[in-house]
């Protein structure tokens, strides 16, 4: 069930070998140098610059004074940021788990050798080819009580039918989740399907001989085998959660009120529209810290913890 690691043959510590390995590695190192510099200067550099700016009183242009943690105090007293933070957790949890469940079920469905598999695969994957902006605008119309679903059902004679989540402060964030699921489930399905196709046919035969019900094979045998696919899907979906911005802008503009605001929109608005670089970078720093906190346990398990205990 686990990935098989092949241990590299240990190199004997003789001088010639080290020199030879240096000779082969030097060109590689030179080739990687530009990338390394870009990572250092552009990524790490900009990150540090952003963190530094969050401790200043910068407005339109960066200003390198020292403003203490005032921007952070303001940030946490700001309703809009607090709502944004809550929203991103709601969206993240529902979006990732929803995509995994729907994606897996769709993949299992297609894996039953259904007729017209290619057609279904295309239909399920199609939403992913839309940009978030198109997705957002389409769902905005579809969910608008005066234009979309609610009006359609009412016109069919069900006068009391109400589905006004998108204009309801308490429910609006879930409409964003729905649009996100519609957009992202297909990709998860494609990843899962690739995994399902890689499952050894003999396992299925063995299970059949043992008389194990199909659903049980899926949950107890196939699903654990799909672990790498699940991890890939989660990573891809999680980056989508952190950068969630265009879907909200296209669909609700953060409304009604501030009900569907998200951190990335908070940062963008404050940096570019409200000339408030200090507060914007403070929010960006908080996003960075959150991502690091979420990633830290995984990095620890994957890279830091000694190989030996990882059976």
């Amino acid at each position: 069930m686990d990935t098989i690691s092949i241990r590299a043959p240990s190199v004997s510590p003789s001088g010639t070998k080290i020199r030879r390995s240096l000779r082969t590695r030097l060109p590689a190192a030179i080739a990687l140098l530009p990338t390394a510099l870009i990572v250092l200067v552009v990524y790490i550099g900009c990150m540090l610059w952003t963190v530094r700016l969050s401790f200043t009183s910068s407005t339109l242009l960066p200003k390198l004074d020292w403003f203490g943690v005032t921007q952070y105090t303001r940030l946490f007293a700001n309703d809009r940021f607090v709502t944004s933070a809550e929203n991103i957790f709601i969206f993240g949890a529902l979006f990732i788990s929803g995509c995994l469940i729907i994606g897996f079920l769709l993949a299992v469905f297609i894996d039953q050798n259904v007729r017209g598999e290619g057609l279904f695969r295309t239909i399920f994957l199609y939403p992913f080819s839309m940009s978030f902006v198109v997705t957002g605008v389409a769902w905005q119309w579809f969910l608008n009580p005066a234009l979309g679903l609610q009006k359609l059902v009412r016109d069919m004679g069900f006068e009391t039918f109400t589905f006004d989540w998108i204009v309801n402060q308490r429910m609006a964030i879930y409409t964003i989740v729905i649009a996100g699921l519609w957009h992202g489930s297909g990709l998860t399905m494609a990843i899962m399907l690739a995994g399902l196709r890689g499952v050894d046919k003999d396992l299925w035969k063995a299970a059949k001989i043992d008389g194990i019900p199909t659903w049980r094979v899926y949950t107890s045998v196939v699903l654990p085998l799909l672990r790498p696919m699940v991890v890939t899907a989660v990573v891809l979906l999680a980056t989508g959660v952190v950068k969630l911005y265009d879907l909200v802008v296209a669909m609700t503009l953060g409304g009604p009120g501030i009900a569907t605001e998200v951190p990335a929109k908070f940062v963008m608005d404050h940096l570019f529209e409200r000339n408030n670089i200090g507060l914007g970078t403070a929010a960006a720093t908080m996003m960075l810290i959150t991502v690091v906190i979420v990633l830290a346990p995984w990095v620890y398990v994957r890279y830091v913890r000694p190989q030996g205990s990882h059976a």
Binding site: T59, N78, R80, Q169, G255, G257, A259, H270, N275
Partner: peptide, 19 residues
């Protein structure tokens, strides 16, 4: 108003209007 003030007022107004 500087944009950061009018922006903050906008947040307050939209909250008040929608709640």
């Amino acid at each position: 108003s500087p944009p950061n003030y009018s922006g903050a007022i906008q947040d307050a107004v939209t909250q008040y209007w929608n709640t």
